[in-house]
């Protein structure tokens, strides 16, 4: 009996390591598997129920693009350990001002540049003010969310008609295609992947998010890096604002109102850690945005009503965050 106990107690370290590596790899591809499952479920049930797959996919790409643009930019912020609650209101202000310039000049290029410029400016303003007042950036973004919301209302009531700003359909029509949206998201994603994985920047951001004090002692200028992160996020917000205007040329106070929440859900679904740091993944936003859009489309087959979808997404969000937290709990005793 004693000999048997002894045999069971002695372990093979190589086998354990192999097992742990396999487990780690499986965990890392779970978001991709989830996305593929949701896509498959949608395609199967949409075919069975006789829905048009082509139209469905166009809607999915359109929804996913908007969320992915914002969420991909926000990944820079999250990675460096910050948080921005004003993304949605920033996007609205950028879209409104971009729309005004587009209408006034009849130029898509100026509309695009204005949207990006305003979004970057507002985003940088958040981080700069936080730096000036020495406040945590997310505190500043709570304040600025209200401020930008008020600015949007002011623009709509003073410069709009019936609290709406309309961009001529003829101006945006040529770009209101799925291909344009695909090019937009692929281009921005590639840029972000390059910045994140090929430049020093990404490594520094991850380290800053992982341990700010150690990052400081490692020569990383945290304030400068935070401002850069917000500026890069601003580019994504500006592109999303432009894309939203192209898609829906009549802008009101409710335009893009769900983007802030959807961005968070997309990041979590894509496997991004909310605390940022070294385990952050730049592609998580894109993956999560598509998972979420497939989920929306799948559920729309069976039920109608956005309230229902929001509840389901909310519940799934909590479950995924719970599972991530369980996985991140320190399992190893400090020795």
């Amino acid at each position: 009996m004693a000999a048997q106990i002894k045999k069971e107690a002695v372990l093979d370290e190589t086998a354990l390591r192999k097992k742990a590596i396999i487990k780690q790899r499986i965990i890392s591809i779970i978001p991709l598997i989830a996305c593929l499952i949701l896509a498959a479920l949608y395609l199967i049930f949409a075919s069975i129920k006789g829905y048009s797959i082509s139209i469905g996919l166009q809607t999915i790409i359109s929804d996913a693009t908007l969320v992915a643009l914002v969420a991909t930019g926000a990944t820079f912020i999250f990675t460096s350990g910050s948080f921005d609650l004003s993304l949605g209101s920033n996007m609205l202000v950028s879209a409104l001002l971009g729309g005004l310039v587009g209408s006034a000049t009849n130029s898509l290029v100026l509309m695009l540049l204005t949207s990006i410029g305003v979004a970057v400016l507002l985003s940088v303003l958040n981080s700069t003010l936080a730096s000036v007042f020495n406040l945590p950036v997310f505190i500043m973004t709570i304040v600025m969310m209200s401020v930008y919301g008020a600015v949007a209302t002011l623009i709509l009531t003073t410069l709009g008609k019936n609290a709406q700003i309309s961009v001529p359909m003829a101006l945006v029509e040529p770009l209101n295609t799925t291909w344009f949206r695909v090019i937009l998201i692929v281009g921005y994603e590639l840029l972000c992947l390059f910045l994140f994985y090929i430049l020093k920047l990404g490594r520094q951001q991850k380290f800053l998010g992982g341990n700010p004090f150690c990052a400081y002692l490692s020569g990383i200028k945290s304030k400068r890096l935070t401002i850069i992160s917000f500026a890069l996020a601003g580019i994504g917000i500006g592109l999303a604002a432009f894309s939203m205007t192209v898609q829906t040329p009549t802008l009101s106070a409710s335009s893009g109102s769900s983007v802030g929440m959807n961005m968070l859900i997309a990041l979590v679904f894509g496997g991004m850690t909310m605390s940022g740091g070294p385990k952050s993944k730049m592609y998580a936003a894109l993956l999560g945005a598509f998972s979420m859009s497939f989920l929306d489309a799948f559920m729309n087959i069976f039920v109608s009503g956005s309230w229902y979808l929001q509840i389901v997404k909310g519940v799934l969000f909590i479950i995924v965050v719970f599972l991530i937290n369980m996985g991140n709990k320190v399992k190893l005793l400090e020795r």
């Binding site: 380290f207 992982g210 341990n211 004090f213 150690c214 990052a215 740091g277 070294p278 400090e334």
Partner: peptide, 9 residues
């Protein structure tokens, strides 16, 4: 652990 390393990295 606090000042010299990012332990999760």
């Amino acid at each position: 652990d606090i000042e010299s390393l990012c332990t999760h990295a």
